[in-house]
Amino acid sequence: MIPQAFEYEQPSSVADAIAMLGKHGGEARVLAGGHSLLPMMKLRLAAPDALIDIGRIASLRGITDTPDAITIGALTTHAEVAGAEVIASGCPILAETAAGIGDLQVRNRGTIGGSIANADPHGDLPAVLLALDGEATAEGPNGRRTIAAADLFVDYLQTSLSPDEILTEVRVPKASNSAYVKFNRRAQDWAIVGAAAVVHGSSARIALTGVGSKPVRAAAVEAAFDGSNTAEAAGHAADGLDAPSDTAASGEYRAHLARVLVRRALEAAMAR
């Protein structure tokens, strides 16, 4: 199906883009890779008055390596993240996650900023950013601010970005003992459940996707983990979780997947 008609704007700078968002007063949407937004518009689940296509803003691309962290421009595609040597060595969880998103064609268009801003409850990158304790930088009419992953994901498809803000970059700390494991049934499907584990010696940060309206930390696992008891700690992955039932899986099955996938993610992270 063809999307409903909209006005199309093509800003050449972040400042321009913010001004255009302001001009359309909340009825405009940012267009990045378009691989969540255009499918929704084709199905007429979204019908914005205007699209602000940030795709040509060069400053939003690229990967910067620093001693402790990696900064990734919002427009960097999944394929670029998956293929970057600095990410594969410094933050393997991120490279492996990007390489497993959708399919080849999706990874050639979809962007890291779009995935984070879209906050799909079955998306892979929000949970990974949460486990990494990463952050996003946003620019809006009131300037620039940094939002910790823990404060970013609010609810189903909702972040704490305001509608007139542009997510400009994502920053992740380096974490060599890190891994993401997801489960789905069919090729190209979104995760039914996914588990991200970042291990530092005897402590770990764990986040889950697909178990609620936004990614969550598995606090009970983190509390139980002592640096070697992966199976026992992972057994707590569904503690306090009220995972939803839908056509893909029952809540009970999601709880089971959470326990299994957290164990596998911890094992994979520690083996790196």
């Binding site: 199309y8 267009l31 378009g34 691989h35 084709k42 080849l104 050639n108 268009r109």
Partner: peptide
């Protein structure tokens, strides 16, 4: 390789 149904001609 891209899915041309998920790219606008203007893009």
């Amino acid at each position: 390789a891209v899915k041309s149904c998920t790219v606008l001609a203007v893009q």
